[in-house]
């Protein structure tokens, strides 16, 4: 029996966001946008979904006079990401 893949993570853009956040302490919205190539609107929606699931925290503030949105992965998000990757590896090893 295969473990069920987390539907929150099983989306291209949300997975890319989580992959970026997995390797850093936190990341700026503009940086994530640049790395993923997503539009601001789409990225905002996906970030809200990850935030609502408790996988990331979103902090709004200022850097100098410029508004800044910073995303950070939560321990629950890290756990979910790790479980998701393990599940993927099980799928692939079963397929061999």
């Amino acid at each position: 029996m295969f473990p069920k893949l987390d539907p929150i993570l099983h989306s291209e853009l949300r997975l890319a966001v989580m992959s970026i956040l997995a390797g850093v302490e936190d990341a700026d919205f503009t940086y994530i946008k640049k790395q993923t190539g997503a539009t601001s609107g789409n990225l905002s929606v996906q970030i809200d979904k990850l935030s609502a699931a408790g996988y990331i925290t979103v902090e709004k503030g200022f850097k100098g006079k410029m508004p800044r949105t910073t995303c950070r992965m939560t321990p629950a998000g890290r756990e979910a990401f790790s479980t998701y990757v393990t599940a993927l590896q099980e799928y692939l090893s079963a397929g061999k």
Partner: peptide, 16 residues
């Protein structure tokens, strides 16, 4: 599953 893992690997590598 393969595409998902490839996406994760590529994104993390580019980021690093």
């Amino acid at each position: 599953a393969r595409e998902s893992l490839a996406l994760i690997t590529e994104t993390m590598n580019n980021n690093r």
